[in-house]
Amino acid sequence: MTLLLKQIFAFFRLLNSDTGTNQLAAGLSLGLILGFAPFFSIQTLLVFAIIFIFRVQLGAAFLAAFFFKFVAFLFDTPAHYLGKSVLENESLRPLFTTMYNMPLVPMTRFNNSIAMGSMIVSLILLPFAYFGFKVAIIKYRATVVARFKSSKFWKAFTATKFYNWYLTYEKLYG
């Protein structure tokens, strides 16, 4: 539980910092794929590789994955019907037979209708999620953070010795 709270606080610190919106939006949108994909699968390893190779915010991805795991249950029935219709498509049967006989591809669990449908849904939602999160982060920083930093409470708090101590501590031990 403390790990989750630590990730949430780190995420809000990132939202309020000058961290690039692309890294945060990419982390949140890749968390969508992690949330919809089965945990022990090749898709998860591929997304982790993307997160670690490119500059993607890890905390945002984990927080989004935690949230989207719960949202994915709401999409199970439509994902099942979508995956079932794709898997039962006669024109794709030779492709799926070839994929199933490959060494690592069956570990993607593509032959499960819910896993197939969830992967299709998450890949369709990925670009919309990326741009939606990017716009939301920009609007959050422009409205909420700017309004909070101009408030009397924040100005009074930044004038205290405790805040100055915190800034020194953050510089030294970050």
Rank of each mutant, 00 (worst) to 15 (best):
A61N: 02
L58D: 03
T108N: 01
A60L: 07
R109K: 13
M107C: 01
D76N: 15
G59C: 03
L92S: 05
L30R: 05
A61F: 04
I33H: 07
K84Q: 12
L32G: 02
V47L: 01
L104A: 10
E90L: 12
P106N: 08
Q43D: 10
L30C: 00
A26E: 03
A37Q: 01
L46A: 15
F96H: 02
E88C: 04
G83Q: 05
S91H: 15
N22D: 14
T77L: 02
A25Y: 08
F70E: 11
R109Y: 12
F110Q: 05
A26H: 06
T98I: 14
V71Q: 09
G59I: 09
E90G: 09
F66D: 08
L32W: 02
L63I: 12
R93C: 00
F110H: 09
R109P: 00
K69L: 04
L74Y: 15
R93A: 14
A60D: 07
P103F: 11
G35Q: 05
S41V: 01
T77N: 08
I53K: 12
F48L: 13
S91N: 15
L32V: 05
F36E: 04
E90C: 01
N101G: 13
G27P: 07
F70N: 11
A37P: 00
L92W: 09
T97C: 00
T21M: 06
K69S: 06
F39D: 12
G27R: 09
S41C: 04
T21P: 03
L28I: 10
L32P: 05
